[in-house]
Structure formats: C-alpha cells, structure tokens
Design a protein around this nucleic acid. Structure first.
Lengths: 219, 219
DNA sequence: TAGATTGTTAATCGATTAACAATC
DNA sequence: TAGATTGTTAATCGATTAACAATC
C-alpha cells in the first residue's frame, strides 16, 4: 500500500465527487482525458494521481468508474462507518447535518447538540427529528449539550457553533475523547496528540473569488 | 504592485481571518513567529508571504496588526463592496446568508432566491426578513427566482441549491450577467470567458479528516 | 492488427526552508 | 548600544508537465 503524497491526497476528494456524478449518469468507463475535464486538471496529472493509487487503469480502455470510486472511497476512509456529532444547532450546523455532505462520504450524524433552546419537532414514519424547520437524517436527534455524556459516538465532532462558544466547546470535545474535529467556524484550531483537527475554512474560498473579481482573474 | 504567486494568494484569506482575531483581542503588533503559530505555518514562510505584499514589517518590532489586515483586505478585494445574491433558500443557502462569512469579507447579501415556496416573515425594527426561522441581514429579502430580473446586484451569485437544480440555475446566473459564482454545491463547475467560478468544495475537507482517522494522521 | 490510452520517466517548474545580513 | 526581528538569498525539496514506450 504505497504512501500517497500530500498533493495527491488533497485532490482525491475531488475525484470522488466527480466520479459519483459519472456513476449517477450511468457512465461505466472514463479516460484520463475525460476525467481531467471534469475535475479541472491535466490528463497527465490525473494519470499520475491514479497511478499512485495502484494499477487501476487499462491501456487502450481507460478506467472503470466504479473501481476508481471504490478505491478512492476506501483510501479516504469513506467506508469506515464513522459517526459524527454536530456541536451547535445553528443554521450552519443544521444545514450540514441535513445535507448529503456527510452521508455521501460515509459519515453518519447521530446527534446535534444545542447550547440554547431550539424548536424541535418530529414528522414522518419512521419519525424524523425536525429542528427549526430542518429535517434531520434518520436516528439523529437534537439534545442539549449537557447530554453529551449520554451520546456514544466519539469519532467526529462537527464544530458549527458561534465563534464565542468555540473555546468552551472545543475543550468539551477534547475532554470527551473525540478522535477528530471538522471545524466549520471562522476560528483556526490546532489539533494535538490524539485529536485530529481539520479546519474547513469555508469563507476563505469566497475571498479567492473576490480576489479574482478585484484584479484580473484566478485560473 | 507586485504579482503574487498562487500559493501566497491561497494563504492570504487565512492570515486575514487570524488577524481579525488579534484585532478583536486588542493586539496591536505581531511577530512572524507569533503569527506563524496562529495560522499554522512556519515563521519563515510567513515572512516570505508578507514580504511579497510590500514593506509592511519593521525590523526589531514586527508587524502592525491593523496595517497588515488592511493591506490583505485591500489585496483580496474585501473593500470593494461586492454584492451577493444567494440562489436557493436551502438550509445551507440561508445559513451562509445569515452567517458572518460574507459580511466579514465585505460582501453584502442583497437577496435570497427560492425555487420552492418557503416560510417568510419579518421581525424587529428596522424590520429584518426571517426565512424558515433564520434571521437575514438588513435589506436582504427573499424572493421567488422568477423575480431575478428585478434584482440589481450582479457581482456574486452564491449557488446553494440542491444538486438537481444546479444546471438550470447556473444557466440563469450566466445569462443574467453575474461576474462570479461562489459554488457551495457538490457539483464541480467550470467558469468561462467573463464568468469566474470558485468551487467551495466544503465536503472535500471532511474527507481529509476521515483520511486522517483512517490511516495514520494528517499534518 | 490498428487505435487508444495507460504508466512512467526525465526535465521543468515553483514552493519551502534555513540561515543571516540588514536594520529598527 | 544590545536585542529583536525583518527581508532576502541560496539550497532544497516536492509537484507538475510533456513525451513516449508499453500494452490492452
């Protein structure tokens, strides 16, 4: 199992996303040229990246979309069945909990924790929790943060609270033994020892756009 | 006005975010060493990046936080007063419209457009629009997408609809002469000619976390 | 077989680092 | 002045590209 370079790893989620689109369209095979067009890279780079994953292609044919998708999913841990707890029943917290962003990557949201009272209801059969009008996935409830001890998931903490609450909740996350933090807030967090942190930096990409509009263009 | 390398530009939004934290804490000056700790880079790299922006530092002293912040803001177009229209009154669309993500970067949301009927109310004085329980910024209304022609903003289109609606709305955005698209959906879009596209790829960063949990670690 | 397309290589390109002279 | 810290340089490191032999 070869070691992948950082640059390759950072591009794999993009291939993953684009390959899903091909699957949804019923496409069975793809060439490096075609895939390059979809992900916005050069065909040469695509071949290099995919070759780093193993012998997945076939000369004169291309790549099997499904094989590629499965291999990338497995490399990135999308099949590991990780569970996530969302910290903060904010509009953003509820939006990601309800979005396909996590489920499509094999991550199951088991709970949303709120720090202030929120509107909670249920609907449907089997019943789903509806929080502030947002319908949450099956088996995902909304609880006050004081109930954290009763929730069993300890894989991923999705940090989606307001900025003021970050220090407090971050400590809580670390103390309760979570393995990783997906940080959706504007603050930059650092991991340590056994706690892995990935800062999503959502807003940063907006500034690449404003930069592009401000001066010449970007790619 | 020196040309910045792509690598430097991609890091500027991060400095911007971290410098704001310093400002909020009343910090007036910072050394490359301290700033490096905050943003998670090496001091050497920080000095290199900031030197590329011009002569902002002072030997033996460090950098003025405010000067740095202002310079980066101006380079990235945060002071250009861009306006944004959100396409899709989805949980995600409403979340970013209400979040400080745009306002902190000098982008003002003037409208949220829905493709399906949504719950709209107003509250406060001056009155703010509340959509599905989410309180929107001043002067930001929610309208059916058919009203797009009546909205004047043509800077940034924030694409936050469901995946199925992307092709249709993307065409609408291009046809109405928007300058840029900030794409929050899972689809990978390509810009052309006069339309600049930045794919936010929010979910991609989650996979860097699952990769880290799956195998060894990440940084 | 002929055509298509991969995997790999060597060459290029750009980014990062460490060290230190300049200087506040 | 002495101490601190920048800006810059040369060396290193890693990533991208273009070309093509291998092969399905």
């Amino acid at each position: 199992m070869s070691q992948l370079s950082r640059a390759v790893i950072s591009r794999l989620p993009r291939y993953y996303r684009c390959l899903r689109i091909l699957i949804n369209n019923g496409v069975l095979r793809v060439s490096s040229e075609e895939l390059a067009g979809l992900v916005g890279l050069s065909a040469s780079q695509v071949r290099g990246d995919l070759a780093a994953l193993g012998d997945l292609g076939q000369q004169g044919y291309g790549y099997s979309v499904k094989t590629l998708y499965a291999e990338i999913a497995s490399r990135l841990g999308a099949g590991d069945g990780f569970e996530a707890v969302v910290f903060g029943a904010t509009p953003m917290g509820l939006a990601v909990a309800a979005s396909p962003a996590l489920s499509r990557r094999g991550v199951r949201v088991t709970a949303v924790l709120h720090t202030k009272p929120v509107d909670i209801a249920t609907c449907g059969d089997p019943p789903k929790t509806v929080c502030c009008g947002v319908v949450l996935p099956d088996c995902c409830g909304v609880y006050p943060i004081t109930e954290l001890g009763k929730i069993k998931s300890r894989d991923i903490a999705v940090l989606a609270c307001d900025d003021e609450e970050v220090p407090e909740l971050y400590r809580l996350i670390a103390d309760h033994g979570f393995a990783g933090v997906w940080n959706l807030t504007e603050l930059e967090l650092r991991g340590f020892a056994k706690l892995l942190v990935v800062n999503a930096r959502v807003g940063d990409s907006l500034m690449l756009l404003t930069y592009g509009l401000h001066s010449g263009d970007w790619e």
